[in-house]
Amino acid sequence: MDILVTQVFNGLSVGSILLLAALGLALTFGQMGVINMAHGEFMMAGAYTAYVCQQVLGDAGLSLLVSLPVSFVVGGLLGVLLEVTLLRRMYHRPLDTLLVTWGVSLILQQLARDLFGTAGVDVPAPGWLSGPVEILGFSFPRSRLFILVLAIVAVVAVTLLLKLTPLGRRIRATVQNRQLAESAGISTRRTDMLTFFLGSGLAGVAGVALTLMGSISSNLGTSYIVDAFLVVIIGGIGQIKGAVIAAFVLGVAQSWIEYSTSASIAKVIVFALVVAFLQFRPQGIFQVRTRSLV
């Protein structure tokens, strides 16, 4: 029982990080069909922003709270820069955006190595996040609970934004039918830019969360990006609820298989499971029903 609870909690914890990483992807991939391989590096940029904040401010607790919005903006601005300079001209070639953003991610990684060194840097967690907390006789690390809460808050915020705000309506309209949205007077270009800002900003927030998990280095993003994309694929393109379910299922499955076999075997089994899952639902858990052939 003890092991079960610990494993499930570990899974939820891994899942909440995957979810933070995948949430932004689900937006950009879902709306524009853009496969942003630099998303992981936006996470890295968020993590390094948290590091810089802490170096400047000194106090761990204050800097964590400050770095959340700052990283959101840093990630978002990087995303807008990428969208305006490169991706805007490539919407009719979605597969090629993958390679272009891969080039961006290579450059950002090398830049991080040149700026912050190849060795990882530590961002110490504030006192109120270190140590475990006792719930029902089980002890959970506070930092992981914080990440879980952060992920839930992010999901709720994005869901409300999409459902209630004018921007959310414009985003949903553009996702559902770009041409029709345009003819209804929505500036899809502006919407695209804002979506990219939002999605990339979420990557920055995910980066801050990662600083609570351990030291950060230039290859921080690469270790999460593949899994985050798998979450988006399993969840179904552009589906927030799909991403939520997929992230937690993948997280729990991974930590459970990891526990019963080994980390390396777990990766292979999870990959096989994803391919097997796509045999049954090639469009993910939730799919937008359509009469279109493709």
Binding site: V175, N177, S292
Partner: peptide, 10 residues
Amino acid sequence: VLAPAEGRTT
């Protein structure tokens, strides 16, 4: 190229 856009048309 058109596929993703059409695919999401409801």
